[in-house]
Nucleic acid binder design. Structure first.
Length: 360
DNA sequence: GTCGGAAGGA
DNA sequence: TCCTTCCGAC
């Protein structure tokens, strides 16, 4: 059922993309309460606004503070949120109450002393919740993430692995978004071949959280093709991370321009699986972020047989009651064609990323 | 402005 | 479960 007030004020543009369901903690996608009609969550909405250039005057990432964002116009954000949720009485007081509920969930925390400034809790999601350094299931598949800072690795159950992976990927995305935003201020990438309107050189994480996951009337416009792009992206992770990738960045990836080759990095075309693979994906900083979140240069990161059960990687499917999300989305992001899938992309089982213990 | 308890709705 | 609404306290 359409509520009729959802897209208003938030135009569907080619720059609108849903964030990959894969990229969020799985508790964000529990659909048991209302299967098939799940409403958007506030933090999704916040991220969505942050993702869109047209709302930069309303809400924006805080430069220099990863994950931190400023609500520049609280009333407008509340109004947009109210429209999305068909709650015309929404105001910042109520919205902020909802945001405060995220504190306990560790999705957000408040940046004290800064008005209307919050921070996504990427690091805590990964480091504090899951002092991962080794994440291993009793049997394969398992996920090994780095060496423990001290002593023995911690065992993490599969359910946590799943969430961990989600958090990681979420972090990847968010970092990419921020870096992209910074990069955008420096000028658009030239060599990507990406069309204008695909607002980021970052390979957009398509979303299994398509409009239908959020209910039939609650999207700004989402190309289903985009929805699949993470599904295609995710398995393509391995070629994105050469064995020496940790040498390519510091604790956090600086906002590199696409013309600025990463020192020591192989050429893109040696890494990317096919011509349609956006070079932006190369800049996708996810795992290097973990490097930054970790303990320093003595770490090892490995992803072995990565196939968490909770990971949703689905091909795009048409859903009843949903607009064809491709409409209004002429721009193209990465979309693997049938014969284009590389062997590794379909083989998560063999995903392995090694973080050298002693980077040069 | 910010916080968090409480009640209630979907 | 995730807000929405209200409210008192700081």
């Amino acid at each position: 059922m359409h509520c009729g007030c959802l897209t208003e004020g938030i135009p569907a543009t080619p720059g609108n993309y849903w964030i990959s369901g894969v990229a969020f903690p799985d508790w964000a996608y529990k659909a048991e309460s209302s299967p098939g009609s799940r409403q958007i969550q506030l933090w999704h909405f916040i991220l969505e606004l942050l993702q869109k250039e047209e709302f930069r005057h309303v809400i924006a990432w805080q430069q220099g503070e990863y994950g931190e964002f400023v609500i520049k116009d609280p009333d407008e954000v509340a109004r947009l949120w109210g429209r999305r949720k068909c709650k015309p009485q929404m105001n910042y007081d109520k919205l902020s109450r909802a945001l405060r509920y995220y504190y306990n969930k560790r999705i957000l925390h408040k940046t004290k002393g800064k008005r209307f400034t919050y921070k996504f809790n990427f690091s805590k999601l990964i480091i504090v919740n899951y002092p991962l350094w080794e994440v291993r299931a009793p049997s394969s598949p398992h996920l090994l993430l780095g060496a423990p800072p001290l002593g023995r690795p911690a065992l993490v159950p599969m359910s946590v692995q799943s969430e961990l992976l989600h958090n990681m990927l979420f972090t990847h995305w968010a970092m990419a978004e921020q870096l992209t935003g910074q990069r955008m201020t420096q000028g658009p990438p030239e060599a990507t071949g990406e069309k204008k309107g695909s607002s980021s050189s970052i390979h957009r994480l398509g979303s299994v959280l398509g409009p239908c996951r959020l209910g039939p009337c609650c999207h700004f416009g989402t190309p289903q093709g985009e929805l699949s792009s993470f599904a295609t992206f995710s398995p393509a992770l391995p070629p994105l991370f050469p064995s020496n990738w940790t040498t390519l960045s510091g604790p956090f990836l600086p906002p590199l321009s696409s013309e600025q080759p990463l020192p020591g990095a192989p050429k893109l075309d040696t890494l990317l699986p096919g011509p349609s693979f956006s070079p932006g994906a190369w800049h996708f900083p996810g795992l290097p972020l973990l490097a930054g979140l970790g303990q320093g240069p003595g770490e090892r990161l490995q992803l072995l047989s990565l196939k968490p059960e909770g990971l949703e990687v689905k091909p795009p499917t048409a859903a009843k009651g949903c607009l064809d999300p491709r409409e209004g989305y002429p721009s193209e992001t990465h979309r693997l064609k049938p014969g284009e899938e590389n062997s590794e992309s379909s083989n998560l089982e063999n995903l392995k990323v090694v973080w050298p213990l002693d980077p040069p």
